[in-house]
Simulated assay, not measured.
Amino acid sequence: MANIASVLKSEIARLARREIRSELASLRKASSQHRSTIAALRREVEQLRKQVRSSGKATRAAPAATEESVQRRFRSAGVAVHRKRLGLSAADYGALVGVSGQTIYHWEEGQRPRAAQLQALAAVRGIGKREAAQRLAALADKAPKKPAVKKPAAKKRPRRS
Rank of each mutant, 00 (worst) to 15 (best):
S22D: 12
V52P: 01
R21V: 08
V52L: 00
K9I: 00
R21L: 12
E11S: 10
S54V: 03
R21H: 11
R43Q: 13
T66K: 02
L15V: 14
A40Q: 12
R17G: 07
I38K: 11
I20E: 15
R72C: 03
V45T: 09
V52Q: 04
A62E: 10
R72W: 09
V52D: 04
K50I: 10
S54Y: 03
R18M: 14
L48G: 00
S69Y: 01
A61S: 03
E23D: 12
L8M: 04
V70P: 02
S32F: 05
A16F: 02
A40K: 13
A40N: 12
I20S: 15
A40Y: 05
L24R: 15
E44R: 02
A64H: 08
L24W: 06
F74K: 00
R14Q: 14
R43K: 12
R75S: 10
L8F: 03
A13S: 07
T59K: 09
S54P: 01
T66I: 00
A62N: 07
A25M: 05
S10Y: 06
I38T: 09
H34K: 11
I20W: 12
R75V: 05
E11R: 11
A58K: 10
S54N: 02
E44W: 00
S32Q: 14
S69E: 03
R60G: 06
S36Q: 15
R73G: 03
T37L: 11
R72F: 07
V45H: 12
A64R: 13
T37C: 10
R75C: 04
K57L: 06
K57D: 06
R53A: 04
E23L: 09
R21S: 15
A58Y: 00
I12N: 05
I38M: 08
S55C: 05
S31P: 01
K29N: 10
T59L: 12
I38Q: 11
E19T: 15
A25H: 06
F74N: 03
S54H: 04
L48Q: 07
E67V: 12
E67P: 10
S31R: 05
T66P: 00
R75D: 08
R21E: 14
E23C: 08
R60Q: 03
S31C: 03
L27K: 11
L48K: 08
V70D: 00
R35K: 09
K29M: 11
A64C: 04
A58V: 04
K9L: 01
A16S: 15
L41A: 10
L8T: 08
L27I: 11
P63D: 08
R72H: 10
R14G: 14
A64P: 05
A64M: 10
K9W: 01
R17L: 14
Q47N: 07
S32E: 15
R72M: 10
S32M: 13
A25R: 09
A58P: 00
S54W: 00
S22A: 15
I20P: 04
V7G: 00
T66Q: 00
R72T: 02
